[in-house]
Each structure stands twice: as C-alpha cells, then as structure tokens.
C-alpha cells in the first residue's frame, strides 16, 4: 500500500515539475504578450495541482496536508484572478491582441504577419 502511494506521488511530482518547466519554456518561447498569458496558466493550474497533490500524498494524513490543501485552494482562486487582472490591465492600456482568425475589425489589416490557417 505504501509503495503504491509512493509511486503515485512520484508520478504526480514529476508531472508537476514537467508542467512547471513547460510553462516557463512557453513564457520564453511565445512570440507576444497574449500568447505568453496562456503559457503561464499551464504552470498555474496543471503544475500547481500536480506538485501539491504529490507532496500531500508524501505527507499522508497530517497537519502538513491541511496546509498544502490550503495553499492549493488559495492558488486555485488567486491564480486565475491575477492572470485576469494582468490581461485586463493590458487591454485597458491599449495592448490589443493580434488575431489570426478573420475579423471585420478596422485594425485587422495590421496583424496579418502571423502565419496561420486563417
């Protein structure tokens, strides 16, 4: 039983580390601000959930697990909220996203340098 829990928590922790790195790589690789937002949200949801659940499995039924779950609940609520705050502030300040999908906007002409299947 203990071995099963150990292996499960290893899988969770390695998966969480993988998604954390993927989020950071995306943050560096993606070409503009609006796509970087999505890279960050990979770390914020998948990475955080997997790592914290993995640590909780290692800790077992103790007060440590309660603290981990509190951190998880807190990050679950504030992660999307701060991402939304950054996105909203950028939109209000005039940083408009470029769209690869056909739109009948006035500024659509300036944004067709992105290769996409339109």
């Amino acid at each position: 039983m203990q071995a099963v829990i150990d292996i499960l928590s290893w899988i969770f922790i390695i998966g969480g580390s993988f998604f954390a790195i993927v989020g950071a790589v995306g943050l560096v690789r993606f070409p503009d601000f609006w796509s970087r937002l999505h890279a960050v949200s990979v770390t914020d949801s998948a990475g955080v959930i997997l790592l914290i659940v993995g640590m909780a499995l290692q800790a077992g039924l103790t007060l440590v697990t309660v603290k981990l779950l509190l951190i998880l609940a807190f990050l679950f609520i504030t992660g999307p909220t701060s991402t939304h705050a950054v996105a909203n502030a950028a939109l209000v300040s005039g940083l408009k996203p470029r769209s690869s999908v056909d739109r009948d906007d006035a500024d659509a002409a300036t944004q067709d340098d992105k290769a996409g299947p339109t």
């Binding site: 950071a24 601000f33 770390t43 950054v86 502030a89 950028a90 300040s93």
Partner: peptide, 14 residues
C-alpha cells in the same frame, strides 16, 4: 512591455 514583466513576476512568485 511592462505587462510581460508583471506576468513573469507573478509566475515567478507561483
């Protein structure tokens, strides 16, 4: 941009 930095700072905190 400033918002890239704020986004990175938030991600760094997480």
């Amino acid at each position: 941009s400033l918002y890239d930095r704020v986004l990175a700072l938030n991600s760094f905190g997480t």
